[in-house]
Each structure stands twice: as C-alpha cells, then as structure tokens.
Simulated scan of single mutants.
Amino acid sequence: MSSQIYINGQFFAEDEAKISVFDHGLLYGDGVFEGIRIYGGNVFLHGEHIDRLYESAKVIRLEIPITKEEMVKAVEETVARNNIDDGYVRLVITRGAGSLGLDIRRTSNPQVIIIAATISLYPEEYYHEGLQLITASTIRNHPQALSPRIKSLNYLNNIMAKIEATDMGCIEALMMNHKGEVSECTGDNIFIIKDKIVKTPPTDAGILEGVTRNAVIKLAREAGYEMQETTLTRHDVYVADECFLTGTAAEVIPVVSIDGRQLGDGKPGPITHELLKLFQELTRSSV
C-alpha cells in the first residue's frame, strides 16, 4: 500500500504528494527539518525534536504555520496512518513558493511535510564489527557563515564529505572545523573514550547539537562515567581506547579505525557496548 504523506494538513499518496517547483526549499535549500525515530509505534524523544525544529525555524526567520501541539498531533497521525511500528519520521518545513530570488518577502505558504517510513541507515554487521572512518578534506561550515545548530535543508557541506568517504570505501567520514579541531561526522556526532572518560566535542566546535547525542551524554553520566564536552583533535581520536557515533537514524554505532589507524583492539569496546545497551533500554522504555 502506498505511503500516506502529510502536506499542510492533508494526506496524499506518494505519487500525488507534490509541492511547487518554485518552493525556496527546492530552489535554495531554504527550510529546516528533523529526523525522528519510532519505536513500538511511539515517537521517540518527540518533544526534544519538535523544540529543535522550532528553534531552527526561528533562527532563519521561518514562521511555521502550526503550533507545536498541532505539529505533535500531525506527526503522530502520520505514523498511525502508515502503520509504522519501528521506523523513522522525516519532518520538513520549507520556506514556500516564491520568485526566482533570495528575498523571503517574496515567498508565501510555508510547506509542512511529514513522511513516516521504515529505515536502515547502516547494515546490521557494523553494529557488531564497527565502522571504519576517514577524515574528510571538506571541513565543517564556518559557524559564523551558517550555524551548524540549524538543522537546515542545505546539506551540501555534509554531502561533499560523504562523497569522500564512499570514494575511499567507507560509509562515514569525520569532519574537522575551521580551526582544525574535531567537529562531527557527515550525519552523526562523535564520541571517544580514553582511560574510561567519555568525551565529545562541544557545541562551539561547529556541530549540530544532536538529540541522541544529548541522550547519550545523560546516560553516560547516570552510569557513573566522567563525561566531558571538550575540544578534540585528530590525535585524540587516533589514540582513543574506544569510539562511537550517535544519531537519530544511526542510534549508537561503534568505530574501530580511522584513517587506517586501529582504535583499541580493533573491536567495539566495553563502554561502547554498555552505552549502546543503555540507549536500547531507553528506547524500549518509551514504548
């Protein structure tokens, strides 16, 4: 059966779900989005994702035409209509149709689009065997040019780094910021573990403040680990005992090598396993 796509209060079959070719989301990447997981039919960390969506929209002066409460209900109805038990929601807000120019005053009717589907970002074996990463030559956008805390429709920066990864036979790449510090990966936040201390770059390193990232930081602290949001270099990653990535779609996935350097014993480490287990328990507790 065809998926039911929500667009501005109405549901359409996949082949009938359309927006204008003059929408500035298409023409200029002018809009924001969220990716949200579904576990057992329930939308995971729903409030946190909706809050971030509205914050991103506010920063780019995009007025979402429905309230947060209405958005929550719209997402839940989309999930229910598509009978998704375990899956993923892509929530997109575009600037709306306008003229061939950058002036937002010449646009109207922002589009609220909600897609609910199943997802498998990485093959299952990578969660048991770990990922291999390369460092991309493409750096993260300068935070004074475009704040990485805005989850915008313009992902070309990430895509260029992803191309580098796939060209090298990897499926993810580490990105540095304009100061040469560790930022994040093309679609995930990065954590390392050294001497049982869990570390991750701070928000001012040019990262998206991930909802899953924040959940894992809380889990690590509750489990009794020292948790540091601190500046990291490639050297810190190379000599780490363990490394893992977090993201809504990726969840928690181990990394076992970067730029040809083996991390630890080349296998997912015990603290990574523990945090993955705790995160899985958290997702089940929401069901």
Rank of each mutant, 00 (worst) to 15 (best):
Q4F: 03
Q4P: 13
Y6Q: 10
N8V: 04
G9F: 03
Q10S: 13
F11K: 12
A13V: 12
E14G: 07
A17D: 01
K18D: 13
V21M: 11
G25W: 09
G25H: 09
E34A: 03
R37S: 07
G41V: 04
H46K: 15
G47S: 10
H49M: 14
L53W: 00
A57M: 07
A57I: 00
I64Q: 05
T67S: 00
V75L: 01
T78Q: 14
N83P: 03
Y88C: 07
Y88M: 11
V89F: 07
R90A: 01
I93E: 05
T94P: 05
A97N: 10
G98C: 06
D103C: 11
I104A: 11
R106K: 12
T107V: 03
V112S: 03
I114Y: 06
A117S: 14
T118Y: 06
Y122H: 15
E124H: 11
H128L: 05
Q132I: 09
N141M: 09
H142R: 04
S147P: 08
K151H: 08
L156Q: 02
N157R: 04
N157C: 14
M168D: 14
G169V: 13
G169H: 10
I171S: 00
E172T: 08
L174T: 01
H178F: 05
E181K: 09
V182P: 01
V182F: 12
S183K: 05
E184M: 11
C185M: 07
I192W: 07
D204I: 01
L208F: 06
E209S: 15
A220S: 10
A223F: 06
E226K: 05
T233D: 01
R234G: 00
Y238G: 00
Y238M: 00
A240Y: 12
C243F: 14
L245A: 15
T246I: 02
G247K: 14
T248Q: 06
E251A: 15
V252C: 13
I253C: 13
I253Y: 07
P254H: 05
P254D: 08
G269H: 02
K277I: 03
E281A: 06
E281G: 08
